[in-house]
């Protein structure tokens, strides 16, 4: 699936998005763009609207005001949903007795034209094998998903999200419950996806302290967008200090 080209070449444009649950505002006038090759972390404290923003981008919620454009098109008009990969926050909270092998979990997301044909089956086999190899889980393909460790399951869900070779991959709180050493391996994997597979990555996390040096851009959210710029600038800016200290203030966007 070819990704439509937006005028400003942004993969995704979030434009003046606001959202509230009843009378409780969650997002106010959020605007930013995601470009090809970005390894973006959307960070902010619990309740800052990160997951809500992600659900709006993915079309799971509708914004009260503003819009989200994918390659210049509205999501409803966008026919290339398989070219969006997504690993939900609760991906690992599945029924542990669910009788699916790791291979079947990856294959369930496949969108192959004419899947019943010999050519279709060959393409599917190749796509699943490639996705499992990229995340280093090929040898576990026949293992029941519930019998894998949390970190291995997370890799299988990433394989499922990239099996259709997406242009962009969203991960919602992917390192929750993962120890520091595994987090290092995890960020290495994501960096490889950006550099070797050409996938743009958007990662959501509430844990500001773990934002890795491999991340190239940071969007900091607390109802409003309080920072959007490079990771290096973010580390030098007062935003990080303020957030770690528990305070927040609005600064201008740095595109």
């Amino acid at each position: 699936m070819d990704w439509p080209a937006a005028e400003d070449k942004a993969l995704i444009s979030v434009e003046n998005v606001s959202f509230s649950f009843g009378s409780l505002p969650v997002l106010r006038d959020v605007t930013f763009r995601i470009h090809a090759g970005d390894f973006l972390a959307i960070i902010g404290p619990n309740g800052s609207g990160k997951t809500t923003l992600l659900k709006i981008i993915l079309g799971l919620l509708r914004p009260e005001r503003g819009r989200v454009l994918i390659g210049g098109q509205r999501l409803d008009d966008f026919a290339g949903r398989p070219s969006i990969g997504y690993v939900p926050q609760k991906a690992t909270h599945f029924d542990p007795l669910f009788p699916a092998s790791a291979r079947e979990v990856v294959a369930m997301a496949l969108r192959t034209p004419r899947p019943g044909s010999r050519e279709g089956r060959h393409k599917e086999e190749t796509a699943v094998r490639h996705a499992l190899q990229v995340v280093g889980m090929d040898e576990f393909k026949n293992r029941r998903i519930g019998r894998l460790s949390g970190g291995q399951q997370q890799r299988i869900f990433i394989a499922r999200a990239i099996v259709n070779r997406p242009r962009i991959l969203f991960l919602d709180e992917p390192t929750t419950g993962v120890d520091a050493e595994m987090q290092g391996h995890f960020y290495e994997l994501l960096e490889r996806l950006v550099k070797e597979e050409g996938i743009t990555i958007v990662l959501i996390t509430h844990d500001i302290g773990i934002v890795d040096r491999r991340i190239t851009r940071v969007a900091c959210l607390n109802e409003r967008l309080v920072y959007h710029g490079s990771h290096a600038e973010f580390c030098r800016s007062d935003t990080l200090k303020d957030m770690l200290a528990g305070g927040h203030h609005l600064i201008s966007h740095q595109h």
């Binding site: 993915l58 079309g59 799971l60 949903r81 398989p82 969006i84 997504y86 690993v87 939900p88 609760k90 991906a91 599945f94 669910f98 699916a100 079947e104 979990v105 294959a107 369930m108 997301a109 496949l110 969108r111 899947p115 499922r160 999200a161 259709n164």
Partner: peptide, 18 residues
């Protein structure tokens, strides 16, 4: 079979993928 299985296993991810 495949979309039914995806929907059964992970409704949200299935919805996002179309």
């Amino acid at each position: 079979y495949r979309p039914f299985m995806y929907l059964t296993f992970d409704r949200e991810a299935a919805k996002v993928s179309g």
